[in-house]
Design a protein around this nucleic acid. Structure first.
Ligand SMILES: [Mn+2]
Ligand SMILES: [Mn+2]
Ligand SMILES: [Zn+2]
Ligand SMILES: [Zn+2]
Lengths: 140, 140
DNA sequence: ATCCTTATTGCAAAAACTTGCAATAAGGAT
DNA sequence: ATCCTTATTGCAAGTTTTTGCAATAAGGAT
């Protein structure tokens, strides 16, 4: 039973099809220890599935995000990158040196609840990037 | 005295040069009542400055963001768009129908201060997009 | 096992965005 | 007014991302 089995089951249950392309991409995301750009996913994925095309990578990452299995991130370069959507968290990034700190979602919870009651919106699991200057870069 | 005068003065003071390209783009941003994509800025700007190129638009928007005169937004399409950075605010966007609600920054202030004391980072004026389902779309 | 429906992929071309480098021109100095 | 320095722009080419449409194949039905 391969590691992406649980995720593909979710897709199945919701009426989506399981394809080799989706399997490979899920597998890669699940073993990545960083946010990956579509190009990085593509390079890695085609090692085991050479027929895979960039177009499909873009569409699959978008798809996985829509169904909640992945989430998009905006990093220093403002290029988008993706990761598996497991635990809720956010990022704080130094605009100067790129240093990143993770912000657990619990810190944001009160704000989210406030927004929900005030607007009537139902928030989804957001994955935000705050920017600022890290302690080191403030001195220079 | 044209409307973008105050902004260009700021640039001058900080040692940056005032160019027709920057003037036009600032002017457009200051009169826009929405977030504009680089292409939209380009189309509008070249009406009064036909020699302007896309490259310059991208670089100028990036530049204005760096110096704090503009800010980037990530909307439903995830394509980037820009607006003048006047008052601090954030966005809440319905993932289904695209409806947008503005969130005043004051709502976020306690969270930001919490993050600053905890991490030592000094936050810049962030311009975030929350996603969720609007009341109407929750029913369907 | 074969057929059917249609979601998903690949293909080809376009659109959006980036990059290195040479030409230009803003703004300070003479 | 002219010159100088170098920040900024344009140019050309590359890379990334999107899009419409035809081909493919996943998964349910027979
Ligand atoms: Mn993350
Ligand atoms: Mn905004
Ligand atoms: Zn830093
Ligand atoms: Zn909605």
């Amino acid at each position: 039973m391969s590691c992406e089995e649980k995720a593909t089951q979710k897709l199945s249950e919701r009426g989506f099809r399981i394809t080799p392309q989706r399997r490979v991409i899920l597998h890669i995301l699940m073993h990545a220890n960083a946010h990956l750009t579509p190009t990085e996913v593509y390079e890695e994925a085609r090692k085991s599935l050479p027929s895979l095309r960039e177009t499909t990578v873009y569409r699959t990452l978008e798809f996985l995000t829509q169904v909640g299995l992945a989430q998009e991130a905006f990093s220093k370069t403002s290029k988008s990158a993706y990761e598996i959507s497991d635990y809720a968290h956010h990022h704080l990034i130094c605009r100067k040196c790129g240093k990143e700190v993770e912000i657990p979602h619990v810190k944001m919870k009160p704000l989210c609840e406030d927004i929900e009651t005030e607007t009537g919106f139902q928030l989804m699991q957001n994955h935000l990037s705050f920017f600022g200057l890290c302690p080191a870069c403030q001195k220079n």
